[in-house]
Design a protein around this nucleic acid. Structure first.
Length: 357
DNA sequence: TAAATGTCATGGTGGGCGTA
DNA sequence: TACGCCCACCATGACATTTA
């Protein structure tokens, strides 16, 4: 008995199939969802003894449990009319969140960016201190910081998973660095111009790219690092081998530059991805950078996370994940689209199957 | 602690159109 | 034909929750 319409992704060494699950009904908008105080066990235990939930004598409800402090709450205010005191509090907080005054979340984001290079404990301490003037007390600031740090961590994990899955389904051809020249661009026009250019190349020439905007540590100059899939014959301009001096390694080296990008933006470096090692290095570079900086990954072109295929039982190597609800597939499994055999798994076969993002 | 997964709001993407 | 710009819509990121 086959498993129809499984979502299949690659973890880099194996393909994993996720059979479709019946969806759980989601609470309707406005429905009351019982919110519980966060479990202390889940919080970081480095300073757990300070947490207000340890002390029954202190009223728990006085602590703001929302991640957002009433911003985005405008439309929710009318939903719980019965809780007058709570509403009063929310209204007061919303008054505080006028256009001129940043919300606590915005202050958190600023502090988070400011202390991005500190280690976890130091950063947490600094954010709590920074939030103290905007909080009822220390416990309030601490809890708000812990909840938002956890949010940041979860988002990073989700970004990392998405990027890895997308990358594993592609055959990238180049690792590219693009830097702008002051004579051609401001930082703003460079970001917009390059974004438009890559968008058009992906739409018109089938380019695919994932990358990050980065500032060089020395000069703080904005540049773009990305891994690209460039279909043969679609490279605009001319490729040049330029004998260049590398200030980091203090050595001369040959860089592969492109006249189209050089003329339009300033400087380009194209390194061919000849093997998995180069791709792995490029991916870990981007991954490390997004972890370090909290920057978003930029995607251009068709980069799905999953392809959809029916899975035959004899192609399953073993169950995987919680209660074996997923399956690790054999290295050479057959792909099926709605009961029709498409071929043995390969990048060419995958290209013929429906995709899911 | 890491990872998976469903839902939702919104920023980014792609299609379409105008211009050179 | 190449490129720039606009805008509707959809993919992404954020969030909540669960699981291993």
């Amino acid at each position: 008995m086959p498993f129809a319409k499984c979502k299949v992704y690659s973890d880099g060494s194996h393909y994993i199939a996720i059979p479709p699950k019946p969806q759980k009904p989601w609470p309707k908008k406005g429905a009351k969802v019982k919110k519980e105080a966060p479990d202390l066990e889940e919080l970081d235990d480095d300073e757990a003894e300070d947490c207000p939930f340890d002390k029954p004598a202190q009223p728990v409800q006085s602590v703001q449990l929302s991640l957002f402090d009433g911003e985005k709450n405008d439309d929710k205010q009318g939903e719980s009319e019965e809780d007058g005191s709570k509403n009063e509090q929310t209204c007061k907080e919303n008054e505080d969140n006028t256009a001129s005054k940043p919300s606590r979340k915005e202050i958190f984001e600023q502090l988070y960016r400011k202390h991005i290079n500190d280690n976890y404990k130091k950063r947490k301490r600094a954010i709590i201190q920074g939030l103290l003037p905007h909080s009822k007390n220390y416990d309030d600031a601490k809890l708000f910081t812990e909840l938002n740090l956890r949010r940041k961590r979860n988002n990073l994990i989700a970004r990392r998973i998405r990027m890895t899955r997308k990358a594993n389904l592609q055959d990238f051809t180049h690792f590219v660095t693009l830097t702008y020249s002051n004579e051609l661009h401001t930082e703003e026009s460079f970001k917009k111009g390059l974004g438009d250019c890559l968008k058009n190349l992906s739409k018109r020439q089938g380019w695919k790219c994932m990358g990050v905007w980065e500032r060089s540590p020395e000069k703080q100059r904005l540049h773009f690092h990305g891994i690209f899939y460039i279909p043969e014959g679609t490279m605009p301009g001319q490729m040049l081998d330029v004998n260049d001096y590398n200030f980091k390694s203090h050595r001369r080296r040959i860089t592969h530059q492109n006249t189209y990008f050089n003329g339009r933006f300033g400087r380009s470096d194209f390194e061919e991805i000849a093997d998995d090692e180069v791709l792995g290095d490029a991916m870990s570079y981007i991954m490390k950078y997004i972890e370090k900086s909290g920057e978003r990954i930029v995607y251009y072109g068709d980069l799905p996370q999953f392809f959809v295929s029916d899975v035959m039982e004899n192609d399953i190597l073993c169950p995987y994940g919680e209660d074996g609800q997923k399956f690790i597939l054999a290295d050479t499994f057959g792909c099926w689209d709605e009961g029709e055999y498409v071929g043995q798994v390969s990048k060419e076969t995958i290209a013929k199957l429906p995709k899911v993002n």
